[in-house]
Design a protein around this nucleic acid. Structure first.
Lengths: 211, 211
DNA sequence: CACTTAATGCACTAACCAGTTACTTCTTTA
DNA sequence: TAAAGAAGTAACTGGTTAGTGCATTAAGTG
């Protein structure tokens, strides 16, 4: 095996990675329709031809970017090890994690929005994703069951609905940060505003599940 | 005053209205970037020239469509007369109204998403909007105050946060209907699923505010 | 009915953009 | 080291699209 060389003149893997990185950024910034293939190539310091060589076309590239985005958040969620925490704390951790992930990976939200504008047509060919999602719902089901057993939580809560709500209360605030800041006449992205919102969200979820 | 004639050959107001209607549809379907001016003109049974004549350009048209969308939902909210209801019922009504409005006016969500992709740059020139929003927050503040006084609601709930949460739990579910249906492996838009979600949302909000 | 003003239609253009063709340069390995 | 194939480049193409110049036609007015 050849050693890794820093200034390699040719490196397919590195070029692919740079293209994906640049594509994630460009798609997140302008959506699928507004993204420019030339801009992705420039920013990746690659030739446009390489995009077609490695990925097929603009929409194929978008598909891979989406897959990475979904698998990325799922893989981070898996590392949480919520089963080691008491139910309330586990749920609170998940709310905090979800919020912070959206905050630190704002492109995730924009990519999902763009994919919904296109009626999920790109991810529909990625069978790994529903599979990954089952894991998330299972995780929350587990927490709910433990909470029920200990009497902390009430019975009959739908894990999928709870999951959706945990995502919703963070996602909505952040995806609408621009119109929201203007309409509510305050900077929703200020440190204090963000802390307030997270605290409010934790409260919302805990009140929703407690007996 | 001339009488309204059905088959008027020239009618500026009617043409403007048809263009706005077609534009709302096209912008909602494809976003600002993906929308086609020719398509708007065709669907409005107007000549493309008219769009530039009446509205200035594509982005100006988008601005007016957004303004109408925001004023539309606010004007519907105003008609709710929530002050006539007991606090809990008033809040429940608002949750149901918000959900149903999004459901019946899906273009509202897509337009807002598109505007956030563009960092709210179009609505920023519309000073009527923050003004209209103050009314909404005021409405919720009123309900909260009445609930506090009667002992039904706990104290110290932020009206803006509650507003955001009421919107969020409906908006997120509906804007992500396509990816959601695929990832959760169920049709989120089925009648029963919609009813379940609305019931869950009412529960979420009432549990959040009750003492 | 003239005459003015506003509404409408058509055909064009300048810019843009996804995708391709034809080529050069580097790397690997037999 | 020579051949083969992979990585990379630049210039181009065909189609699309926002926006316009100019002519035409209808409606309102004195």
């Amino acid at each position: 095996m050849a050693e890794e060389k820093k200034a390699k003149k040719r490196d397919a893997e590195a070029t692919k990675a740079r293209i994906l990185q640049a594509a994630k950024r460009e798609f997140a910034k302008h959506g699928l329709g507004g993204a420019r293939v030339d801009e992705i190539a420039d920013r990746a310091q690659a030739n446009k031809r390489m995009i077609y060589h490695y990925f097929g076309g603009k929409e194929d590239l978008f598909r891979i970017v989406l897959e990475e985005a979904y698998l990325g958040i799922r893989s981070a969620e898996k590392k949480l090890d919520l089963d080691a925490l008491p139910p309330s704390e586990a749920l609170e951790s998940l709310v905090r994690f979800t919020w912070n992930y959206y905050l630190k990976n704002p492109e995730f939200i924009t990519l999902v929005n763009s994919e919904n504008l296109h009626r999920a047509k790109h991810i529909k060919t990625l069978p790994s994703l529903p599979n990954a999602m089952r894991g998330l719902v299972g995780m929350v089901e587990n927490i709910l069951k433990r909470g029920e057993d200990s009497g902390e939580f009430r019975k009959g809560i739908d894990a999928a609905q709870l999951n959706i709500t945990i995502a919703a209360i963070g996602y909505y605030y952040l995806t609408n940060r621009y119109t929201g800041s203007f309409l509510f006449e305050r900077n929703l992205m200020e440190k204090e505003a963000l802390e307030d919102r997270l605290a409010f969200n934790v409260e919302t979820i805990l009140r929703l599940v407690r007996s």
